[in-house]
Amino acid sequence: MAAASIDGAIRNIIAVGGSLDHLAIMDNFCWCSADESQRLGELKDAAKACYDYAVKYGTPYISGKDSMFNDFKGFNAKGEAIKISVPPTLLISSISVMPDVTKAVSLDPKFAEDLIYILGETNEEELGGSEYFAMHKALGNKIPKVDADKAITLYKKFEQATDQRLISSALSPTYGGLGLTLAKKAIAAQLGMDLKLPKTQRADHFLFSESASRFVVTIAPNNKEKFEKLFSGDFTAIGTITESPEFKIEGIIDTDLKTLEKAYKKTFKDF
């Protein structure tokens, strides 16, 4: 969990055009029950991950904050003592400096006919603790793992691509995996998508795995050759942007932006 938080903060910065060479992070431990051995053990592991990945990525912590007892202790309607605690959470913030602001990349796809790619590897087993499993009331047991060496290689290439203005839009998948990321991008641009998933992986797992160190990008068709050469071995081409506001994944879903946006913006259950 801690490694995924750290990688998430870093790749979000890379996605908008930041650089690993000039990047700092901040930690915010939102913990609970910090007088229980299990929670303290988890805290120790998270702190260890903070050290390991900061050293690996070369990204110093410049500030941080801890709150160790996010617990409510009181009584329920029947007068019985209850305790409600947050799940232990590590929030990482990141900051980077860009020499040229016009090279910043926003998340919305820009024009119809642009090509959609996934960068990085999707491990379809990494669904432990995912939104998809939560929806099916399951927890799972394979959580996303971060391979920092591989990630750094990809992030460095990504920096080159932004510098050469090869990427028109980018968003890094987090909760809800590729499925949610693609939908968010379509909603942001108010442009449709025509998608085809690789046949080698189980579709729902591929769409909702929460594997770390990935990006969904769109590029101008003219940049195809340069882009594919730079990211050789790292990319999966999955479709094109369309003018018509339809969101289609071949053989899986055929819906429209209005439906997606309504689902995305509606309040949580019970609110």
């Binding site: 016009t102 910043a104 990349v105 926003s106 820009k110 024009f111 101008a220």
Partner: peptide, 22 residues
Amino acid sequence: SFTNEDGWELKKEALIREGKEI
């Protein structure tokens, strides 16, 4: 500045593709 504007990223992309300066 050009980059203050809401939606400048889309304008930028259009200019680049037309071979114009930002």
